[in-house]
Design a protein around this nucleic acid. Structure first.
Length: 335
DNA sequence: GTCCATGATTACGC
DNA sequence: GCGTAATCATGGAC
C-alpha cells in the first residue's frame, strides 16, 4: 500500500499521489470530505509502520490545508483543557517555603551563595531545553506560544516543589543534628566507682587545700579515665557541696581517712603493696594532708584526725586559697 | 512518679 | 583563666 494512500476508500479513487484528494476540489462538500480524510489519516497514523508514518507526516505537512487546520486545532486547545489551568498560575509565595528559607538562612546552610543560584540556573537550563523541544515539535503538531508559556510555568512549579521538599528535608536534618548536639552536651554519665574513689581520695587527703595543680589534674584525669575539665568540674562541685554541708560529708571523710591511713600503714610494711582503695598506686597523695578528717559539727574529734592542720581557710573564705594556705607545705604544688 | 545525687553549664567576680 | 555559686538536666534508687 502507498504510504499516502491509507485504507480510507476515498483515497482509492485518487491514484495520482494526492494524499487527501484535495487537489482540484471546488465545493464545500469536497472540502469537508478532504478534512475528513486528513483527520482519518491522522487517526490511523499510529497504526502504520515507522516509515509509513514518517512519509504520511511529511505529506500532511506539505498539505495546503495544513496551516488552516493547524490554527483551528491551536484555537480548540486554547479554549478547552489548557484554559482550565489558568487559575493555578500566578501563585502567591508559599508561606511555608518562606519559613523554610528563613530557617535555612539562619542556620547558615542556605542563601544565594550556597546553591540557590545553581538551582535557579538548573531550572533555567531545563526550561530552555524544553522550550527548544516544543518549538521543534511545533513544526509537526499544534503548539501555541501560550502552551509553551504554560509548560514553562509547570516546570517552574515542579522545580519549586522539589526545592521545597529538599529544603524541608534539610531543615529536618538540621533539627535532628541540633537536638543530638544538645543531647550530647547535656548527657551525663556518672563516673565509675573507681574514678570517684580516686577523686575523693585526693580531695579528702588534700582537704586543707583541695585545689589540684594542673599536673595533678592531668594525673587524676588519666587515672580516672576522664578529661581534665571533668576533674575541674568535679572538684568545683565537690568543694562547694562539701562546704555547704560539711556534716553530711563527715562520714565519707572519715571513711577515706581510714582508707588513707590503712594504705599508709600497708605501704610502710610493704612499699609495693597497693593501697586499699583499689585505685592502684596513688602517687598524688604522697604529699597529702594525711589526714584531716572533718571537724565534727558537734565539736567532737574526728576518729582519724591525723594532722595538726585545720580544715583549711578555703571553707571559710569565699576566695580560692593561695599556695600559702594553712598547711601549704602539703600543698598540691609539691606534687 | 518522686526524690536525691551528681555531672555540666552559666553568670559573675577577681 | 580560675573559682564560686546557682542552676539545669539526668541517672538511679525507692
Amino acid at each position: 500500500m502507498h504510504p499516502l494512500n491509507p485504507v480510507h476508500p476515498s483515497s482509492q479513487h485518487r491514484p495520482d499521489g494526492d494524499p487527501a484528494g484535495l487537489e482540484g476540489a471546488e465545493n464545500g462538500h469536497d472540502n469537508r470530505r478532504d478534512i475528513g480524510d486528513i483527520l482519518q489519516q491522522i487517526m490511523t497514523i499510529t497504526d502504520q509502520s515507522l516509515d509509513e508514518a514518517q512519509a504520511k507526516k511529511h505529506a500532511l505537512n506539505c498539505h495546503r490545508m495544513k496551516p488552516a487546520l493547524f490554527s483551528v486545532l491551536c484555537e480548540i486547545k486554547e479554549k478547552t483543557g489548557l484554559s482550565m489551568r489558568n487559575a493555578q498560575e500566578e501563585e502567591p509565595p508559599d508561606p511555608q517555603l518562606v519559613r523554610l528559607d528563613n530557617m535555612l538562612l539562619a542556620e547558615g546552610v542556605a542563601g544565594p551563595e550556597k546553591g540557590g543560584g545553581a538551582a535557579a540556573a538548573a531550572c533555567s537550563e531545563f526550561t530552555t531545553h524544553v522550550m527548544n523541544l516544543l518549538r521543534e515539535q511545533s513544526r509537526t503538531r499544534p503548539v501555541s506560544p501560550r502552551e509553551i508559556e504554560r509548560m514553562v510555568a509547570i516546570i517552574h512549579r515542579k522545580f519549586s516543589s522539589i526545592q521545597t521538599q529538599l529544603k524541608q528535608s534539610t531543615c529536618e536534618a538540621v533539627m535532628i543534628l541540633r537536638s543530638r548536639f544538645l543531647d550530647a552536651r547535656r548527657k551525663r554519665r556518672n563516673f565509675s566507682k573507681q574514678a570517684t574513689e580516686v577523686l575523693n581520695e585526693y580531695f579528702y587527703s588534700h582537704l586543707s587545700n583541695p585545689y589540684p595543680s594542673e599536673e595533678a589534674k592531668e594525673e587524676l584525669a588519666k587515672q580516672c579515665g576522664i578529661t581534665v575539665s571533668q576533674v575541674s568540674n568535679w572538684f568545683g562541685n565537690k568543694r562547694i557541696r562539701y562546704k555547704k554541708n560539711i556534716g553530711k560529708f563527715q562520714e565519707e571523710a572519715n571513711l577515706y581517712a581510714m582508707k588513707t591511713a590503712l594504705g599508709a600503714t600497708q605501704s610502710e610494711e610493704s612499699p609495693h603493696t597497693p593501697n586499699s582503695t583499689g585505685s592502684g598506686s596513688f602517687s598524688l597523695s604522697g604529699s597529702a594532708d594525711c589526714f584531716l578528717g572533718v571537724p565534727p559539727m558537734n565539736g567532737e574529734q574526728p576518729p582519724y584526725h591525723m594532722g595538726a592542720q585545720t580544715n583549711g581557710n578555703w571553707q571559710e573564705q569565699n576566695t580560692p586559697p593561695s599556695a600559702t594556705s594553712p598547711g601549704s607545705d602539703h600543698s598540691d604544688n609539691s606534687d
